[in-house]
Amino acid sequence: MTVQISGLRVEAEDGERRAVLLDEVTCTLSAHTTAVIGENGSGKSTLARAVGGLNRPAAGTVHVSGLDTVRQARQLRRRVGFLFANPAAQVIMPTVREDVALTLRGRGLSRGEVAERVDRALVEHELMDLADRPCLSLSSGQQQRLALCAVLVGEPDLVIADEPTSLLDARHRRAVARRLLDADGPDVLLVTHDLELARRCEEAVLIDGGRLVRQGPPADVIAAYEELLPA
């Protein structure tokens, strides 16, 4: 899935003035897995949200496989899935099975088709033993695996993941990372502070002060990031 960003500027209200969160970002993202790195407040999450149509540009455009993220937001939502750091923000149904099935609502599938796809997804994500458990009874790691399962059951073309492993222990971090970076899975735009995880992506971009300052192989982009860090 190709993401084309041209002259992107994103602003936000800051009292009586407008704060600039991103400015003059222009790039093309076409790798299967792309890491977005940078310091806190640099604009990484703002970029991810703009690609997903959640942040409206003050100037410039963002196209995801030809879809304008503003004018064609409805079509975009069917093709893009989100995964956030806090799974409690997106795990909303009473039980695990119901939460995964929610993604397929309104897609014209029969009950049998929905049940089949949900069961298959639960097995793939090793969640079948938890299928009828209340979502609120799960650990944070189990909830994040559920959130990822619910995203992927919808078969998106692109998954935007914003710090999806930051709250997880080592076991669940590995499980989520393995699923996200699956060579046979959807394309992934991964916002992360985990530089080892970023190294496993095919491409990386560095955001600093609201601007894209480097794009290329992860090793090169990470080296450029480390040069910006204080000694």
Results as ranks from 00 to 15, higher is better:
2 T>N: 15
7 G>A: 12
8 L>A: 09
9 R>G: 13
13 E>H: 13
15 G>C: 07
16 E>V: 05
19 A>N: 06
23 D>C: 12
26 T>F: 12
27 C>G: 04
34 T>Q: 03
35 A>C: 05
35 A>V: 01
37 I>C: 08
37 I>R: 02
38 G>A: 05
43 G>K: 01
46 T>K: 05
47 L>N: 02
53 G>N: 01
54 L>I: 05
54 L>P: 09
56 R>K: 13
60 G>D: 04
61 T>H: 12
61 T>E: 14
68 D>F: 08
74 R>W: 13
74 R>Y: 14
75 Q>K: 12
76 L>K: 02
79 R>W: 03
81 G>A: 14
85 A>M: 09
87 P>Q: 05
88 A>E: 15
88 A>S: 14
91 V>C: 09
94 P>W: 06
99 D>Q: 08
102 L>K: 09
106 G>N: 09
108 G>F: 08
109 L>V: 07
110 S>T: 11
112 G>V: 02
112 G>D: 09
115 A>K: 07
118 V>H: 05
119 D>M: 06
121 A>I: 05
123 V>D: 15
125 H>V: 06
125 H>Y: 15
127 L>D: 00
131 A>N: 03
131 A>M: 04
133 R>C: 05
134 P>K: 06
136 L>D: 14
138 L>W: 13
138 L>T: 08
140 S>F: 14
143 Q>N: 10
144 Q>N: 10
145 R>C: 10
148 L>D: 02
152 L>D: 06
154 G>L: 08
155 E>I: 04
155 E>F: 14
156 P>D: 06
156 P>F: 03
157 D>H: 14
158 L>M: 08
159 V>R: 00
161 A>N: 00
163 E>K: 06
166 S>Q: 09
166 S>N: 11
170 A>M: 14
170 A>Q: 15
175 A>R: 04
177 A>H: 04
178 R>E: 15
183 A>Y: 04
185 G>W: 00
185 G>N: 05
186 P>M: 01
187 D>I: 00
188 V>R: 02
192 T>P: 10
202 E>Y: 06
206 L>H: 04
208 D>T: 12
208 D>W: 12
218 P>Q: 01
219 A>R: 13
220 D>H: 11
220 D>I: 00
221 V>D: 01
223 A>G: 09
226 E>H: 11
227 E>W: 05
228 L>C: 08
